[in-house]
Each structure stands twice: as C-alpha cells, then as structure tokens.
Write a protein that binds this DNA or RNA. Structure first.
Length: 822
DNA sequence: GTGCGAACTTAGAAAATTTGCA
DNA sequence: TGCAAATTTTCTAAGTTCGCAC
C-alpha cells in the first residue's frame, strides 16, 4: 500500500492523534486508542501552537512584564479595575475604528514574516511561498441598534454586487481524468499522493463514470434527471438520447428560473422573518398496528398477550435488540421503568424482570419486515416511491412570502426509545407519541390554517412572524422544544447562513487586535481575565467549542472550552521534544473524544499550572469563567462576535489558505480535486469532526486488499508475457507479432494503472476511516471560497457540491466572483 | 447577574438510494 | 443481474446564543 504523505515543512507541524472516535456507547474510549484505531496524521496546515509559543516566548524574552504571582492575584482579582475597563472599551473602539478606516487592507507576508506578524491565520500558513492576505469590504456590517442587530449595505451596493455575480453556464467535462491522474502521479516526484476525502481513484472513477454518462447519455444521474429505468438503457436510439439530454438541460433551466433569488431582494426590518406563511401542518406517524397472533411475547417461558400500549413499547425494544444500546444497563433500566408505566396493573404485577422477557418473535417479525422491504419488486418499490412523493408534495412544502419553500422536517418524530449519545443518563426512556393536541402551529393570520387530523385539535395556533418555525411541540424525555422548520435551501436558512459568514469575515478585520489583547490579558492581575484569555487562546487556536454549563445527571458528561475540568488536561513541561505541552483528553459534543497534544506558550502554560493549583478532579479549570461572560466580552470587541464565530472564521481561513497552497492551475482535474479534499480534511481535523468507522470497514478493506493482491499477480503475469512477446517480435517484421507486442504492452500498462488506483483508494479509505468531511463543508466553510476556487481552477462545481449542497449554497454560487477572498 | 426557556445551528448515525463491478 | 460499496438523504440529538424575568 502506498503511504501517501504531504510534502511538508518540517519546522512547524503538529501531530494530531485521533483516538477512536466515539459515541460512548459504541466503543470503550479508554481502550480504543490502540494502534489500529489511531490515525497518525501529520498535516500541512496543522497547528501553529508551537510557532505561537515560540513567538510568545520571544516576546517575553524581550522583557515584557512577568506574570503576577499567585499571591498578587488572589487578593485583587475579584473586582475589575475601572482603568482596565476603560482600556478595554478604548480597545474595542479602536477595533471598530480600524474596521471602518480600512475598507481595503492588503498585506503580503512571507511564510516566516507571517508567522511573526500574524497569529492564527499566519500560523496556518506553513507551506508555500508568499501568501496574500486580503481583507475586503464585506457586503454588510452588523450594527447594534437598541436591542437588535441591523445589517447595512456598505461600499458597492449589495444589489450591484449580487447582480454582477450571474451564474456561469456549467458544462460536463468530457475528460477521462484517470489516465491524466495516473500520469500526473508518475510525473510529480515531489508530490507523493496523500490523504483526502475523495482522492485519486475514487475521483477518477467518478469522472470516468460521469464522462460515460455525458458521452452516451445512457446513465443519467438521479440528481440531474428524475428517473431513467435501467432496463431501457440498451433500447435508446441516438435520437432518444439527444432528447433525454435536451430534457435534462431544459429541466435544469426551468429549475434555475423557478429558484427564488432572495439574495437580490431587500431584507425585511430586523426581527421580521416573513410576511406570509401557509402550510399544511405536520405529518403524523401511522397509528400502532397490534401484532398478529402468531407473533408472541413470552415472560419467564410463558406466553403473555400484552395490552396494545405495552406491546407497542415492547416492540420498540425488540427492534433494537441487535443494537449495542440494549446491552447497556442504563438503557435497559430506563426502558423497563418506562415500559412498566405503559402496562396494565396485571401486566405490571406479572412482568418484574427484564431478563425474563423473551422478545425473540417480535425481533424476528421486525427482521422479516425489513427483509421483505428489501426484496420488493421494482413495481412495488416504484409504488412506494410514488406514494412518498405524493406525501412530500402535500406536506413537504409551504408558501412563504409567495414562494414555495421545502420544509426540512415535516414529519412528527415517531414514538420510540430515546437514543441519547455517549453515556446519556436518559437513554432507553420512552419517547411518547405526539398528538395534535401537543402541537403549536405557526402561520399567517390571513393564510389557510392547517387542519388537524379528524377528531383532533391543535394545542394552539399562533401567528408569530419573528420566528422561523412552522410547528413545535415539547418532547417528554428532556422537556425540550422541537420544531418543524424549513429546508437548508430556503430563504430563511440561506440568509442566516450568509450572515454567519459575513460576521466571520468581519472578524478578520479585527482578529489581530483581539489576539494581541488576549495575549496581553494572559498577564493580567485578575484571575478571571487570565482565565478568559487562556480560554480564548484555546478557542482561537484549537477551534474548541464554547462549552456551556450543563445540568448534571440530565445529559452525558461532555465539555467544551469553558467547562473543561482539571482532569481533562495534563501538563507536560517537556513531551516528544516539545516544551510546555498541554495534553487534552475529553468528550466533546456528541461524546466525541477530543485528544490532542499541543505545545503552548510559556505564559499559557504557567497560567494553566496556576489555574490547576489546589484543585482536584471534578473541579472546573476555568472556575471564574462561563460562556455568557466570555461572549459578552467578545461582543464588546466586535458586534456579533461570539465564541462560535472563531470556529467559522478559522475553518474558512484554513480552507482558503490550504487551497492556495495545495492547488495549481496546471494540475489535472483529479489532482485539483485531491487538493480540495485535502483542504477540506484539514478543516475537519481542526474542528475534530470524527465519525465511527463504517461497520463494514474491516471487511471492505480486506476485500480491496485481496483485489490488490490479485492484480499484483496479474501484473507479474502480464509482464512476463510482454517479455516473451518482445523476444518473439525482436527483428521480426511479422505484423501479427508486432500487434501482439502492442497488446501486451497495453495490458501491462492497464494493469499498472488499475493497481495504482486501487492502492490510492485503499490509502484514501483508510485515512478517511474516522474523519467526517461533510460537517465542515456544510456548516463552517464559506461556500464562496469554494465557488471562487472552482471558477479559478476551471473545476465544475458539481465535483465539489452535490445537488443538495448546490441548492443550499445557491446564493453563494450566484453571487461569487473569481476574485472573492474570505 | 443569574437562571431559564426559546430558537436556532451543528452533529453523526442510520436508512435509503445509486453506482460499480464480477 | 445481484451483490457490495459509495453516496445521499433523513433523522433527531446536542450544542450555542439570546432575551426575558426575577
């Protein structure tokens, strides 16, 4: 297997070791950092902390004030001095002023200069030559006015900008990238192939596939066209193929024309989300159908006919018996407790022990149903599809300000057992069936109000146009409110998304100042300020989440930055040749483990030591800090700034820098794609987006390896046949022998290419085993960076974004010019 | 200033569908 | 054609942030 490694600058790199990803319930975290589970990824982009720590230390060596001693701090840090507050306000004002005074700032910095003059951004600029950092006027600013925020167009009118960015006609690329890719690999000596979401072979394969599609017009992807039954493939004449192609183009054009270009319209006043909203209300799951008589439940070996309510809940459990959840004590206990509540008195008196329950026949029935569904005939599948389509048409759309918009989740969540992630104390509890009487409907007064199901009524109908939801209910397990909202491609979601990236772009204009400030705060006399500075350092450098406090016993024990406890970090004066290393090990959102060893500056290190003094396991690392205080501080530095913005900002900046460093115009399409995926993966790693390895991972890797081995044998054979053919053809003018020689040459070449593709695929698959690329792509990366990159690189956007993603980012696709800079 | 609920975004798993290959 | 793998879609849990009430 080829080990694909980036050519990287060895000076500044960090080893990011991912231990086994995990939903706590899926594997044992403490045991899963075995060799096999550890993806050792040395990344081009990777962290910067070492550089930063050097930088900070240098500053310290230049004679900056030493940190206050512990005793200095203890007595004085409770109340913030007025002078300091004044300074802060001044800094914030300066920051705002700088923002206004510099509509266009252009800075060129070499790699080394950048790492000295800039923090974060420049620290990510680790490879490559000069880096251009441009700060453009953003389309709008966020300005606080009274309670709300208001966006203002500035500079070039947004409308003008919007109109300039008309959509470019996209064409399918009839190229076979595979051979180019393989050739490229052979030629490029300094680029050993490497990691990526969809690398080498996978991409080349896709391109090949797409080429086939466009050339023959036989296989039309569902995303581009509706359906094209496989059985019709060979019957199509040339005319029919032409017609299909024309239809496809027409459909695309129609879709484009139908699209609501909301980004070209004026926005409503602050707080108003819509002026007209009409919908059909949510779709309820079907009522429970009691079990047939031949499916029996046994307790302690004896058949028991359960009441419908108890039976339904028993079936929920039975259906999950193949899942690890049902082996966990918490899950079982919670389930049993809630199940008993659904039982009749008689059943409750009889069924006392879950271990004596036999759900075997219920499980089997469930499996049979799944199997039957899988084995449906084409006609049956088609009928189901059509029925679903009908439901979608009826319930899946709403009318929002005279435009039809797709609803994201129009179905009410069906009852079942709560699947909390990690060690959730409420896992296994019964999620009750939601009735229309639980539902609040939100719509316009003047709209046709959704009818509740016959014999029922809504809990409430309200007309609140300051919110985006169409319906809501309170779920019984955690008491939280659930909403029915619009799809990601809707105006409401798109507008918010656009705004999010604009706020992140705003941060670019004052990030240097903010960074200098928190660096200075590391030496503050007040413990609270020092803690805030260290937390910000982590949030900025490591893209940690804010970390709200959580109610103990209500959710899994997960933390973010502000809620870190002393047991979540280990300080090493020296580790693996680095000084001042912080070892993080904690469960973050979704109980995904965050494990990282990061060299930090001496100041940060000393502060951490101080914060940990006289504390024990279970104590908060930042005992004088919470997210409210942190965000309050941040919003005073820049309107709209919160901890979350740093993640968006750093993710997008990283993508932009990586794309600049990794991609070349002269690369083949596959190589460019490879670069894009590498950049995407850099961000995914920064944000710790992990996934559980697919269940079939080991098997599919073994299958692939077997294929590789077999291909290797074929190659040996093909080579020996070529040798033989060469001998025979030598000095002979026999055309047959010459033809045979050519044939053998081609066979060897084909075999080599196939082998290389497989090896690349294997590496790619292995390296992507635990990394989820889609989360960052969908939530953190400003789509305009990708769109501009595609335009500059002549890359069809379809290679980067699938249909759903293109719909979601329609606003960005439409308005982005090739010169866009984040 | 603190706690709490509402509203929204972010997240990975699981299911469904499509695609590739023998 | 059928199976396996890859990709997309759906689902809903788990976060963040904000504003209001006390």
């Amino acid at each position: 297997m080829i080990r694909l490694i980036h050519v990287i600058e060895p000076t500044i790199k960090q080893r990011t070791t991912f231990s086994c990803n995990t939903l706590g319930q899926r594997s044992n975290l403490s045991s899963c950092s075995s060799e096999r589970h550890v993806a050792d990824l040395t990344w081009v982009f990777a962290p910067f902390c070492k550089a930063q720590s050097n930088m900070d230390d240098k500053a310290e060596d230049r004679g900056e004030t030493k940190s206050a001693s512990k005793s200095d701090l203890s007595g004085r840090d409770v109340l913030e001095s007025k002078n300091v507050q004044k300074d802060k306000r001044k800094a914030a004002e300066d920051c705002k002023r700088t923002e206004n005074e510099k509509p266009l700032k252009k800075a060129k910095a070499t790699k080394n200069e950048a790492s000295v003059t800039k923090m974060g951004e420049s620290e990510r600029t680790l490879v490559g030559d000069a880096v251009v950092l441009e700060v453009e006027d953003s389309d709008f600013k966020v300005v606080r006015k009274g309670k709300g925020r208001k966006r203002q167009a500035n500079g070039d009118s947004m409308m003008e900008k919007r109109k300039r960015g008309k959509k470019r006609q996209r064409e399918e690329e009839p190229l076979d990238e595979l051979s180019n890719f393989v050739e490229g690999l052979k030629k490029k000596k300094n680029v050993k192939i490497e990691e990526s979401g969809e690398t080498g072979f996978g991409l080349a394969k896709k391109r090949k596939m797409n080429m086939k599609t466009s050339e023959t017009g036989i296989k039309i992807k569902k995303e581009e066209n509706g359906e094209c039954p496989v059985s019709e493939k060979r019957k199509k004449t040339k005319e029919e193929r032409e017609a299909t192609r024309a239809l496809k183009i027409k459909k695309k054009e129609e879709e484009e024309q139908k699209r609501w270009r909301w980004w070209e319209e004026e926005r409503y006043e602050y707080g108003v989300k819509w002026k007209f909203l009409e919908h059909k209300g949510p779709l309820f799951p079907p009522e429970y159908q009691p079990l047939p008589d031949n499916v029996r439940f046994f307790y302690d070996g004896k058949q028991v006919k359960l009441s419908p309510a108890a039976e339904e809940v028993a079936l929920f459990f039975a259906q999950m018996l193949d899942h690890e959840y049902t082996t966990k004590d918490i899950f079982r206990n919670n389930f049993f407790k809630d199940w008993r509540k659904e039982m009749t008195l008689e059943e409750r008196q009889l069924i006392l022990d879950l271990d004596k329950c036999d759900f075997g026949e219920l499980l089997q029935m469930h499996k049979d149903k799944v199997e039957a569904r899988r084995n449906m005939t084409q006609e049956e599948k088609q009928a189901v599809k059509e029925a679903n389509q009908k439901i979608l048409e009826e319930f899946g759309y709403c009318v929002l300000d005279h435009h039809q918009e797709r609803i994201g989740n129009f179905k009410i969540e069906p009852p079942g057992l709560f699947r909390g992630r990690g060690d959730h104390p409420k896992q296994g509890m019964l999620k009750k069936r939601i009735q229309p009487e639980d539902i609040i409907i939100n719509c316009s007064k003047d709209s046709r109000i959704a009818e509740p199901p016959v014999g029922h009524q809504w809990k409430e109908v309200r007309h609140d146009n300051t919110v985006t939801w169409l319906a809501s209910w309170t779920e019984n397990v955690q008491g939280s409110i659930k909403y029915i909202m619009l799809n990601a491609n809707s105006k409401l979601k798109g507008e918010k998304d656009w705004e999010k990236y604009e706020v992140a772009r705003q941060l670019k204009t004052c990030v240097d100042k903010i960074r200098s400030e928190y660096q200075a705060d590391l030496k503050s006399k007040k413990m609270g300020i020092r803690q805030r500075a260290v937390a910000l350092y982590f949030i900025d450098k490591l893209a940690l989440r804010a970390g709200n406090e959580k109610e103990e016993g209500e959710t899994a024990d997960t933390v973010g930055c502000c809620s870190l406890r002393v047991e979540h970090i280990t300080l090493h004066d020296q580790l693996d040749g680095d000084k001042c290393v912080v070892e993080f090990d904690f469960l973050g959102k979704d109980s995904i483990r965050y494990y990282n060893k990061v060299p930090v500056s001496k100041k940060v290190f000393r502060n951490l030591k101080l914060f940990m003094e006289k504390k024990q396991e279970g104590d908060d690392l930042f005992d004088r800090l919470n997210t409210t205080g942190l965000n309050k501080h941040l919003s005073s530095l820049m309107p709209g700034l919160t901890a979350k913005v740093f993640r968006t900002y750093n993710a997008s900046v990283t993508l932009q820098q990586q794309l600049q460093e990794l991609s070349n115009m002269s690369d083949s399409l596959a190589e460019k794609l490879l670069s894009y995926n590498r950049a995407n993966r850099a961000v995914a790693i920064l944000c710790n987006h992990q996934r559980a390895p697919p269940k079939t991972f080991e098997q599919s890797m073994a299958n692939l390896q077997a294929k590789i081995n077999s291909r290797k044998e074929q190659l040996v054979l093909a080579k020996s046949e070529l040798k033989q053919a060469k001998r025979e053809a030598k000095g002979s003018a026999d055309s047959k022998l010459q033809a045979l020689l050519e044939k053998k040459k081609k066979a060897v070449q084909r075999c080599e290419e196939q082998l290389m593709r497989m090896e690349v695929q294997a590496t790619d698959r292995e390296e992507n085993k635990q990394i989820a690329l889609s989360t960052s792509k969908l939530n953190y990366l400003d789509p305009r960076i990708s769109v501009a990159w595609c335009k500059n690189m002549d890359m069809p956007l379809e290679k980067i974004y699938n249909k759903t993603q293109r719909d979601k980012f329609a606003w960005a696709i439409d308005m982005t010019e090739p010169d866009f800079k984040f």
